[in-house]
Nucleic acid binder design. Sequence first.
RNA 1: CGGGGCGUAGCUCAGCUUGGUAGAGCGCGUGGUUUGGGACCACGAGGCCGCAGGUUCGAAUCCUGUCGCCCCGACCA
Length: 523
Amino acid sequence: MAKQQQGPQEKSQDAGKETITPRAKDYAQWYLDVVKQAELAEHSGVRGCMVIRPHGYAIWERMQRELDDRFKATGHVNAYFPLFIPLSYLAKEEQHAAGFAKECAVVTHHRLKTIDGVVQVDPESKLEEPLIVRPTSETVIWAQYKNWIQSYRDLPILINQWANVCRWEMRTRLFLRTTEFLWQEGHTAHATEAEAIEETHRMLGVYADFAENVMAVPVVQGAKSPGERFPGALESLCIEAMMQDGKALQAGTSHYLGQNFAKSSDVKFLNKDGKLEFPYATSWGVSTRLIGALIMTHSDDAGLVLPPKLAPIQIAIVPIYKSDDEKAKVLQEAEAVFNELKGQGLSVKLDAREGMHPGAKYFEWEMKGVPVRIEIGPKDIEKGSLCLVRRYVAEQEGESEQDLRKRKKAFVPRGEALSGMKALLDEMQRQLYERAKAARVRRTRTIDQLADFERFFKDEGGGFAWVHWAGSAEDEDAMAKKYETSVRCIPLASQIPEAARGEGKCIYTGKPSTQRVVMAKSY
RNA sequence: CGGGGCGUAGCUCAGCUUGGUAGAGCGCGUGGUUUGGGACCACGAGGCCGCAGGUUCGAAUCCUGUCGCCCCGACCA
């Protein structure tokens, strides 16, 4: 009894409230909390596999739409190839097979049987040849291209597919790395090397444009070091984004595959001179990992923050009323506002749920990252104004929670609020990008001395370090062991800031170096 | 594949040390009062305690086995 008195179950003040761990306390936990509380995704009963919930999937659908439009605009068409890849196909390209060997799901049987009351794999249904669940589709696609390509007139082939793939990773994280994930993979075939390389760069550009202008995520475009290249590629280009914790996240890749896959699949075409040649290939992809990038770039301790261009709901309308009389009036106005905004082509949600206090709705929509909330109550109707609340505003130093909340809120004359909504959303989109870019600048250094490098990553929180590099793969490994950093990319010339141009000496080996690379810790 | 943790109500967990037949909070349903930043009251529904053996008169609890998931490391979009 005395024992009981000593340790009463302390009731948390937040009991029952869904809470998010602050970023400063535990960034990894914060990420998991946001994913869960914003109802983006959750763990399934299957190891390493997630369920993407409607709100998360809606974001993916918007990404798909934006990307797909860009693929079409650059001349690509969609198609679909099989989930299963015969082992012999995958094995055709040696480097490729070796690269994926350790993470393949393998189908070996095709039937179940009830034996002693237990449903199990029928041992007699063993496949002659095992099937690999695609980790990527180069080999199945090129097996088909063999039939489609005979002449230079058949080229280029510019195909994309939206699909799921499976990579049996040891360690998984929601969106960032799961056993099964959704993505798109472009696979093109060209008559000349120059054209294929151009394509590789073009699609990297598409990704960069999408990341910066739609996701509002600034990226560095560059090439992977040989050790980080896609298995089977001659060159892998990538876009690298910086997350709020200073770590780099590869957000998209575009590979120049040369003639490797054409050769291994024995695909040849007759050129204008009547000579047989192997076509040149590219492949490029982005995945649901982008949702992870989105979260870790913009979101805050109150939950998800979405750029208007990707927000499944751009505006949430919350009606406020007491009496039935008020309720009728308020709902009428709320519906009118809803229809007017919808008529502008905006994505609006009228949250008329009953028995839920307005405050609870505010929290929910904030958690889910809705850019703008409109509160409509009797007072607003009386004044002919709307209460607009932004999900985020440009930061000010040393601002209190109260002041920040106040600053997000604005009472705007009705007509002005409605006619200015698009502009407001555009402005918020721009602000998000600027904020992310400023955050990256704050954590970016041009570094020449190893001691400074060490201090940057060990004491100053780290970020992107622009350093001269002329080391070998072994040197890179050694750096990784010591500082947990790696060469994230060798930036394209256009990406190099003024201060980081010119030649120098490798930060690690001291050898002469022609350009700087971006080093960082990474996801 | 190593190291750790956890499987009890939809969720988070208590109960297990010292076996006696199932609990809390949240959520959910109904009714009422509420509603400008996470409402409250009343009543109610909801569990083969991961699974399989064993010990015992009796197992969520003890023993053995087994399955699954999560977290930390080695591999990766």
